[in-house]
């Protein structure tokens, strides 16, 4: 990776961190931990499972907040407030700008992951000490960490899609709406596809459309490793490797298309 991309990434990272969205996300993590502490004992007996699910969800939601409240406005603002001129008036190619921006956001998301993992792990530990009888049989810490890492990874894949949408659309509002829709579709396309394929009443055209969409949108549902984290349910062979490859190739394709479109665009 070249120096210029790193510098843009660092700029992007610093600018993002100083917007204090990350404080909000940290506060969110703490609030979720407090909520877990107060409410979960009333929800059920299987408390350890609930707390793990709950805190993993907090990690996801936190990463999502970073994307929606920091990355997306950052990208939109680059065009609207013309901050992109600041970078591009230097001898920097548009590709380098896109990559730098993406890596900068990646770093912020990673920080968010670390920050959110702390209350998550503490809470899970606390519940496991308080209710040793309910510790899931096959629970292991590294599985929990892996599951939270893949939540972060899914956020990255989604972020690459946000970049793509942003490079196509001019209006900030439209980009935001499209990102929300894409997130909902991405989360559920996998389930929807399964339901559709099993359905006997659905027409072939509709099924084809769903399959097509599942190729276009990031299949975020695949990155959900809750059952693995909680119950140690065996994943299919090489599942994580496949996930990594899927995510990486998806991001690469999305980013390359983004560069291609961004290169052609008037700013």
């Amino acid at each position: 990776m070249n120096n210029i991309i790193l510098r843009i990434a660092w700029l992007s990272f610093n600018e993002g961190i100083r917007q204090r969205t990350i404080y909000g996300v940290s506060a969110f993590g703490l609030i979720m931990a407090a909520a877990a502490y107060t409410f979960i004992p009333f929800i059920g007996f299987d408390v350890c499972r609930v707390v793990i699910d709950f805190m993993l969800m907090a990690v996801s939601a936190g990463c999502l907040m970073i994307i929606f409240f920091l990355c997306l406005p950052g990208l939109i603002g680059d065009i609207r407030d013309q901050t992109v001129y600041f970078v591009l008036s230097c001898p920097v190619s548009r590709e380098e700008y896109i990559l730098g921006r993406f890596f900068g956001f990646t770093m912020i998301l990673f920080i968010a992951l670390v920050i959110l993992d702390v209350p998550a792990l503490l809470m899970v530990k606390l519940y496991m000490m308080k209710y040793p009888g309910y510790v899931p049989l096959h629970f292991e810490w590294h599985k929990l960490l892996l599951a939270s890492f893949f939540r972060f990874y899914a956020a990255l894949v989604f972020l690459s899609f946000v970049f793509l949408v942003w490079s196509i659309m001019e209006s900030g509002v439209l980009v935001s709406i499209a990102a929300i829709i894409a997130y909902l579709i991405g989360q559920n396309i996998n389930t929807v596809k399964n339901i559709a394929m099993a359905s006997k009443t659905m027409g072939i055209a509709a099924k084809k459309l769903i399959v097509f969409a599942s190729w276009i949108f990031p299949n975020l549902g695949y990155f959900n490793l809750n059952t693995y984290a909680v119950y140690g349910v065996k994943l299919p062979e090489y599942y994580m490797v496949k996930l990594l490859v899927y995510g990486l190739s998806y991001m690469s394709i999305a980013i390359v298309i983004t560069m291609f479109l961004f290169k052609r665009r008037d700013l």
Binding site: F42, D53, F54, S60, N188, I195, L220, N226
Partner: peptide
């Protein structure tokens, strides 16, 4: 299932409660 995505376990908790 088609709507909740990754938050399905939480929805499960809510219905259980």
């Amino acid at each position: 299932k088609a709507v909740c995505g990754e938050f399905a376990p939480l929805v499960s908790d809510v219905f259980f409660a």
